[in-house]
Structures are given as structure tokens and as C-alpha cells.
Write a protein that binds this DNA or RNA. Structure first.
Ligand SMILES: [Zn+2]
Ligand SMILES: [Zn+2]
Length: 614
DNA sequence: GCCAACGTTGGC
DNA sequence: GCCAACGTTGGC
């Protein structure tokens, strides 16, 4: 979908264009920029529903609270979130993305103190408000209105002829909260539909082509002025944490206020679109539905995480709750500190504080082992001297300054199983002893670290988050090694052996049988055993004959690489081998020298025929 | 957009 | 520790 692409927070390397766009924005629609609280927006919605007598409500806090007592009104969420914050860590609050009550302290502190009472109040109120009558709206408005300073809802609207007669546009700058300074753009249709996002706009303007419309600026672009965010991006970006993508400086999402309400994986723009006919303005929010997560498309395609623009000061994480309101406190799953904001790890399962996130970006995170690729000097890649001119890196290099050029992928070492001086392999890049450089003493994880004899290996918490990370400099710190990630997916095959060169599946091995094309259920999803690389395939993927035999400490090494075991996926009770000490990464067996191509493998392969490949 | 298949996870 | 299962990714 276009809008998914357009609004993807991952869209962005175009900070510059973005800025330019913002300037253009001012010029195009001449909109007064209204300053507004984040939290206000939810209030304002109710009030505007009132004032415009708008039948189609527009958000969960406005709509669901009115129409459905069971549909997850924000007050309940607020309570839950608070509970979450109290119980250290755990899963993120389901609606953490809601800009709840994290603003103006002076005015709100009273309300905040008793969320349960508030919740109850909201409940009874909702129970009365079945039909969403005008009086109900007013009641809600009155209930909420005194709680925050608000800009007048009629304020700041300017004509936006680009969308047609009667359309209005409004910019709102947030005055507080974690995304302070961020500018939201709203539209108001001639019918009074209030639009907070591109998707909503599309819904309201059913059938109209908005592909050239830039939500943020309120302008249509024609041909020669491509919208910067439309550029396709490599999926490699996915490897970056959602936390990073939560910085919305890049895409248009940064300016669609609605984007902050569309953060649960199950609540993507897809849902929005499927919901668009009658109530376009309430479709982007709903009660969280965690269950459907796995069936959704990759979350990154549609999730936007809230966060301030990069051009604005980033909120400092609060250390153990000292800073920030209780409502938005999360417990970092990595270091254990509490922090305000909405940072999450790349799987969006655990909160990840800005420090940890930043540390991971700067390769200084104590819980992560960063490794760098060292060319072996022997493999095909290393022996290649000519750039292919075709690969992404070659193409990239054509447009890049010298400092950012990358080595041709055909010339990169493909030899993942070798390591050591003069040999390819991962080298640890950052010692654990650097922990203290990055983290403050007050951070709770330090206690855990010192409690254990060995910070990186003994603490269970540390264990859980001790991750091997192949350094990926793709975007930030380009070096010659910046496409190791690319290689990572290649490292099961040498590309040269008979098995690698074989293009045909045997159709009879278990992996083949599993394939849909052979009538299988696609559960194993592995390459035909006979096509598993003779040199680099995982041992357990090789033909069965090869795994058997008299391999032992004194005998020949078994062929193939052993299956890696991922220590970070294990919880408690792991026993570490003695070699698994600081600076030695044995958690990923690919680095183990025992994985070196054993002579016996070649011999064994001579027993495997390749009738399909010869 | 589809597909092959890689890497990781959780259950046992 | 093994392995079935599956989310994810790069190539086409
Ligand atoms: Zn096969
Ligand atoms: Zn091979």
C-alpha cells in the first residue's frame, strides 16, 4: 500500500528533505501553527465532536468511550499502564503509545493521582452514554475540559484549497510530552470530518488519488517533485530497532498526529483502511489486540512509534522514575532503568530505554557483543579483484563519497567459518569493560552486574539480553564491512561446491518433501539436503549419511557446521562452558574453529551423488 | 509480490 | 541439547 510506504517511519534518510518540506509547508498552506499539548489532542477530540456535532467520532478515547463500555477506553488503559509501570518491567503496556496524561503537570497532577477513580468515573459515564447523544458529548467535554489547557479547537484552521473547497488545514505544535515540538497536521473536511492522518484522509476522500498529495504540506506534487518519502528502502532497515524508528523525523508520519495512535502491531493502516467507510476518524485507534500479531504483515511496514522529531531535543530518560510522569514510565528490559517515552526493542516486545538503544547504535551496549568481520584472504570473495558493478554496494559506491564507499559484494569474504589473524570471521569489537563508560552508576543493572562474578555471563538478566550482534554500519557508520548482514544470510553456502551449484531439488529428502511444491506443509523450510553446501552448511541440514560416522575427539571432525545455540534466547539455568568467558564468544558456534571445514566432509560428499546436478 | 530458505525460538 | 516450527529476508 502506498500509504504504508509513505508513512513508514523507516522511510527515512531524508531528514534534509523533511526540513525543506516543513518550510514548504509553511508557505503552502499559510497555516498558523497552534501550539498544543499532546494530551490535549484526545481532549480536544471530544470537544470538537461536540462543537461540530460530528457524528463520526475519531478516536478510541472519544468514540469507544462513548459507544462501547467494553472497548478499551483510555481511562482503563491509564490504569493498566500505571500498573505496568509499577510492576517492574514485563510486557509493555498495551497502549503505551497513547499520549495519555503526560503533560502539564501543574494542571493535571490531581487527576493523575487516582486513575482508578477516574476509570470508574469514566465507566459510569460511558454506561449512560449509549447513543452518543449531544448531551453525552457535552458531558464528556465538560468532564475533560477543565483538565488541560487547550488551544481553541476552532483556532488555526486555514483553507486548504488543494483538497478542494471547504477543506481546512491546521498545524499544531506539541508543547509538552515526549514528542514536544513535533508538529501535527490536521485537516477538516467540508463535512466536518476531522482528519489526523494520511490514511484517514484517504478514507474521507474515498476514491481520490492522493498518491501525489503530501499530507504534511497540504500540497499536491506533480511529476518532477517526487515526494521524498516514497523512495524504496532496503529491508535491511528492519534490523534497526523499532526504537530508532520511533523517531519520526523522517516520514510523513512525523506529522500525522494520528500516527501516535497506531502503534500496536495489530493496528496498522490496513485495519484503518478496512474500516474506512463510515467512521474514518475513529478507525485508527482501537483496543489493543495482541492476538493477531503474528498474522499481520511485518509490523515495521505499518507501525509507527511515537517520538519527537530529531530536530527537537530528545527527552532524557528518567532514571528510576525521577523524571517524567508516572503514566509514561517504562522499564527498560535491557538495563532495568525506568524511563519515559515509548522506546521498544526491535521485536517490540520489551521496552528499551534510549540509553540502551543509543548504546546499541554506538556499539557500546554492555549486553551486546559486537563483532566485526575480518576477511579470510582465501575465499572467492577475497580473491576477486574486480568490482562487479552490479551489486548494491557497487551501485551505492557510484554515488557515494569515498568515505562511504563499500566493497563490492562479490569481493567480500564469504568465509564465515574461519577466524583469527588473517582469517575471516567475527571479532569482538567492544570489550565488556567499557560498560561503565556508557552507563551511569545509578542504573540498576549495574547492581546486577556486580552481583555476578562475571557480568556478561553470570547474571541471568544479563544473560537474557546478551546478544551477538553482527555489526551493521549500513546507514550510520559506513565502512567496508557494512554489509556483513548481507553476508550473514549467505554464509551457509560457498557458492562454488557442487551442492551449491546444484539448482534442482531432489524431491525426496525430508526438506524437499516439506516444500509446498512437493506437497509439503512448508514447516521446515530448508534447502534440499543434497543442495546443502558441502563446506558451510549446518551439520544438521546435511544429508543424513553425512552426519553419521565415527566422529570423535580423536577421529575426523564431522562435516558441516554445528547448529548454533543462542544463549540469549534461553532464560535461566544455562550452564556456560568454561571457554565462554568475557571476550570469547562461543554462543554462536559459527566462530568455533571446530567448524572449520573438515577434510572428511569432502570425502563424505564423494559418496553423495548429484544425479540432478551433474 | 512471491518464493526459497536462513536464523531463531520455544518446547520437549 | 535437539529439533520442529516459523518469522523474516534477499533475490527475482
Ligand atoms: Zn532434497
Ligand atoms: Zn557450497
Amino acid at each position: 500500500m502506498d500509504e504504508e510506504t509513505l508513512e513508514s517511519p523507516l522511510q527515512g534518510t531524508e531528514t534534509v528533505e523533511e526540513d525543506a518540506g516543513q518550510n514548504a509547508e509553511k508557505n503552502s498552506c499559510k497555516g498558523d501553527t497552534v501550539e498544543e499539548d499532546i494530551g490535549q489532542r484526545s481532549e480536544k477530540k471530544s470537544s470538537e465532536i461536540d462543537e461540530t456535532n460530528e457524528a463520526a467520532p475519531e478516536s478510541s478515547d472519544g468514540v469507544n468511550a462513548i459507544g462501547s463500555p467494553s472497548s478499551g477506553p483510555m481511562k482503563e488503559k491509564a490504569t493498566e499502564e500505571k500498573e505496568e509501570a509499577k510492576s517492574s518491567g514485563g510486557e509493555p503496556p498495551v497502549d503505551w503509545f497513547e499520549p495519555l496524561e503526560d503533560d502539564d503537570d501543574d494542571a493535571e497532577s490531581n487527576d493523575r493521582n487516582d486513575p482508578e477513580e477516574e476509570s470508574l468515573a469514566g465507566e459510569s459515564e460511558r454506561s449512560e452514554s449509549v447513543g452518543g447523544s449531544e448531551s453525552t458529548f457535552k458531558k464528556i467535554y465538560q468532564l475533560h475540559a477543565p483538565r488541560r489547557k487547550r488551544s481553541h479547537p476552532d483556532e488555526g484552521w486555514v483553507e486548504c484549497p488543494a483538497l478542494g473547497e471547504g477543506w481546512k488545514r491546521k498545524e499544531v505544535v506539541r508543547r509538552s510530552g515526549s514528542s514536544i515540538g513535533q508538529k501535527d497536521v490536521y485537516y477538516l473536511s467540508p463535512r466536518g470530518d476531522r482528519v489526523r492522518s494520511r490514511v484517514e484522509l484517504i478514507s474521507v476522500l474515498e476514491g481520490q488519488d492522493l498518491s501525489n498529495f503530501e499530507y504534511k504540506t497540504g500540497k499536491f506534487y506533480h511529476g518532477e517533485t517526487p515526494l521524498p518519502r516514497i523512495r524504496s528502502r532496503k529491508r535491511k532497515v528492519r534490523e534497526r530497532s523499532s526504537s530508532e524508528s520511533s523517531w519520526m523525523e523522517r516520514g510523513e508520519g512525523a506529522d500525522t498526529p494520528d500516527s501516535h495512535h497506531r502503534l500496536t502491531p495489530s493496528l496498522g493502516s490496513k485495519n484503518v483502511n478496512s474500516n474506512h467507510s463510515n467512521a474514518p476518524l475513529n478507525s485508527t485507534v482501537g483496543s489493543p489486540n495482541q492476538g493477531s500479531h503474528s498474522e499481520d504483515p511485518p509490523a515495521e511496514d505499518k507501525i509507527k512509534l511515537p517520538g519527537p522529531s530529531s530536530s527537537q531535543p530528545r527527552p532524557l530518560p528518567s532514571i528510576n522514575g525521577e523524571i517524567g510522569s508516572e503514566d509514561s514510565i517504562l522499564i527498560c528490559a535491557r538495563c532495568g532503568i525506568s524511563f519515559t517515552g515509548t522506546w521498544y526493542d526491535k521485536q517490540r516486545k520489551r521496552p528499551c530505554c534510549p540509553s540502551c538503544w543509543a548504546a546499541s547504535k554506538t556499539k557500546e551496549h554492555p549486553m551486546i557483543r559486537f563483532r566485526k568481520w575480518i576477511p579470510c584472504g582465501q575465499c572467492v570473495g577475497c580473491h576477486n579483484t574486480d568490482n562487479c558493478g552490479q551489486c548494491a554496494n557497487c551501485k551505492h559506491g557510484l554515488q557515494s563519497p569515498e568515505s562511504r564507499r563499500r566493497i563490492c559484494r562479490k569481493r567480500k569474504c564469504i568465509c564465515p567459518i574461519r577466524k583469527g589473524p588473517g582469517s575471516g570471521g567475527f571479532m569482538q569489537q567492544r570489550p565488556y569493560s567499557d560498560v561503565s563508560e556508557t552507563f551511569d552508576d545509578s542504573m540498576s543493572f549495574q547492581g546486577e552486574v556486580t552481583d555476578s562474578q562475571h557480568p556478561s555471563l553470570k547474571s541471568s538478566d544479563t544473560e537474557n539480553f546478551s546478544v551477538n550482534v553482527d555489526v551493521d554500519d549500513e546507514d550510520e557508520l559506513s565502512t567496508d564491512d557494512d554489509d556483513d548482514w548481507h553476508k550473514k544470510r549467505k554464509r551457509r553456502s560457498c557458492g562454488e561446491c557442487k551442492a551449491c551449484l546444484c539448482r534442482k531439488d531432489c524431491g525426496t529428502c525430508d526438506f524437499c518433501i516439506d516444500k509446498p511444491k512437493f506437497g509439503g506443509s512448508n514447516k521446515k523450510r530448508q534447502k534440499c539436503r543434497l543442495r546443502q553446501c558441502q563446506r558451510q552448511a549446518m551439520r544438521h541440514l546435511l544429508p543424513f549419511q553425512m552426519g553419521q560416522g565415527d566422529y570423535g575427539p580423536d577421529g575426523p571432525l564431522p562435516p558441516g557446521r554445528p547448529r548454533p545455540h543462542y544463549t540469549y534466547s534461553r532464560k535461566l539455568g544455562l550452564k556456560k562452558t568454561k571457554g565462554s568467558q568475557m571476550g570469547y564468544d562461543l554462543s554462536d558456534n559459527e566462530d568455533d574453529d571446530s567448524n572449520l571445514q573438515p577434510v572428511s566432509a569432502q570425502r563424505l560428499w564423494s559418496f553423495i551423488l548429484f544425479p540432478l546436478c551433474s
